[in-house]
Amino acid sequence: MTVAEVTRVGWATVQDGGRSGFAGVGVPVSGALHQERYLLATALLSGAPDDRVPAVELLAGGLGLVMIAETILGVVGPVTLRLDGEPAAVGAALRVGERAHVEIEHHGRGPAYVVIGGWAPEATLGSVATDTFSRLGGEVIGSGYRLAGEPQPATRDRIGGFHLPLPEPSGPLRVTEAGHPTLSAFAALTWTVTAVARSGVRLSGGPIASSGSIPSQPVVPGAIQLTPSGEPIVLGPDGGLTGGYPVVGVVATVDVDRLSLLAPGDRVVFRVVDVESAARARDERRRLVARSMAHPDRLP
């Protein structure tokens, strides 16, 4: 059965929290570029963050849907939302009726996430995440794409739940060490974004000394590779599991989501922090997000 059909779409893929547990055999984690927004969206459906809930990750342009059956819709991110032509709330669990027209326009920074009650695309290795590098999981969504599943009446009591506004983090991107001697020299420079993709963010503005290539080693999202051309690449969730370029530092986990807000031409500055303060900042952010999440006691 189909819960909705895409009438028009910009740049969008199917994502979830990621394909974890298979990195040891070469399968990247992939998943939502902005985990915080994604998990907020899933909480609208599930009542709590749930990294297995499928979401449309909209990176640019619009998304039009026609609902086949009545269900729940939740949208989180820098978008405007209209239901049958009427403005509707972003960051809230909404009831959408049979044949309802959903129109979403992207107008800000970074990805938006759309969750739909009952949508259940096929999973690969336990995840629906679209890995644009390994070409695993879901797919790039095109016009006419059908969202398969069964409408979800069980969670209709969630309708009306909403998130409180959450401030965007600001300031330099925090970066932690990876045993490379030039991290402080790297962090002293102002960098310019030259390209963005799910595989990573390319920067220019060096030069910074690079030792060419190293024996291939495991890498993680947020790792900043120094390429021989002098243009660093900050790896994203589809950036691969191993790399042969020196890693100058790794963006602190608390700031990895912010990489998805960057656009070509942006200026980027980094600040080196130690692991203790990076971990503390992450804990504080998680508490802030938890407080802003829709809870049953906030339902009208």
């Binding site: 990195a23 040891g24 024996p215 291939s216 080693q217 495991p218 608390v254 692991v275 990076a278 971990a279």
Partner: peptide, 21 residues
């Protein structure tokens, strides 16, 4: 999660952990 490189081994946790080292 424990992953190998050609001349290295990486140990990874899901969240930041100041005690990992």
């Amino acid at each position: 999660q424990v992953r190998t490189g050609m001349a290295s081994v990486l140990v990874e946790s899901v969240e930041p952990d100041p005690h990992l080292l």
